[in-house]
Design a protein around this nucleic acid. Structure first.
Lengths: 133, 133
DNA sequence: TAAAACTATATAGTCACTATAAGGTCAATA
DNA sequence: TATTGACCTTATAGTGACTATATAGTTTTA
């Protein structure tokens, strides 16, 4: 299949596919005489793998790492689980940070309604005078 | 004061200060004969305002917008509150997304322990076979 | 036959910095 | 006096994961 069909079947842009190839995440496929890339089922699977990892917000470097593990099937899988544990910890800390941020924003928002002049706006005041922790 | 002292007093890098100046967020200060920037208390306040906004994850464009409002003190402050409401909504949706992500990661992680070979690793299997929703 | 849909490469833009290079200025010290 | 070190200047490139644009060649469809 050509790049457009691969793109549609996995749900990514053709540009993204070429980008993954340049980055070494997707092996360079054979070419037709006219230079068009021709992909196989293997490529579909490989690209789908990448996308699933991206949905889980693994970085391209981490995906690269996972691909290296795939090439060494008889090694222990501890490193894979560590990678995932790190990602879980990272996501959890992001959630915590955002919850703090939300509280700050909501509290700032509560300091004003919509019927004032900017001069008297509690929000701008709060931001200007550093009444944040 | 010079750029280093401003940087220390607000807790940013000198590069970041010059960057904000280039971006139009911080007004260009006067210069000494040797070309060094000299800052006033006004600049300290202005920079601190920017940093407080950044802590709340407002974009530089949004901070720019807030600064424009500061120059029009007799306009209604509805737009400011809308900006904040949008930011709150954005943060809340990020939190929701990350919570879904965390569930997926934890569930994937539960499919393996550390004592297998990569070939049998439940994590890699889960990622490869698309057993995700 | 001509238009449309597709493919190719190369290059620049996004965001908010951060890093690096290459150099000028100033005060204190050897 | 020479030099070290801390500070300042500008310009340019890099980060991550794409996304957009420009330009051109090819295939398919009307």
């Amino acid at each position: 299949m050509r790049i457009g069909q691969l793109a549609r079947s996995v749900g990514v842009d053709t540009q993204t596919i070429r980008f993954y190839e340049r980055e070494g995440l997707l092996p360079p496929p054979d070419r037709q005489d006219n230079g068009y890339r021709i992909y196989t089922e293997r490529h579909v699977e490989r690209l789908a793998f990448i996308r699933r990892c991206r949905i889980l917000e693994l970085s391209l470097a981490e995906i690269h790492e996972l691909q290296r593990y795939q090439g060494a099937p008889h090694q222990p899988c501890r490193a894979i689980n560590t990678l995932l544990d790190d990602q879980i910890a990272h996501v959890q800390s992001q959630i915590t940070d955002l919850q703090v941020l939300e509280k700050q924003l909501v509290s700032l928002r509560a300091s004003c309604n919509d019927d004032r002049e900017i001069e008297a706006c509690g929000v701008l005041e709060g931001l200007s005078e550093g009444s944040m922790q």
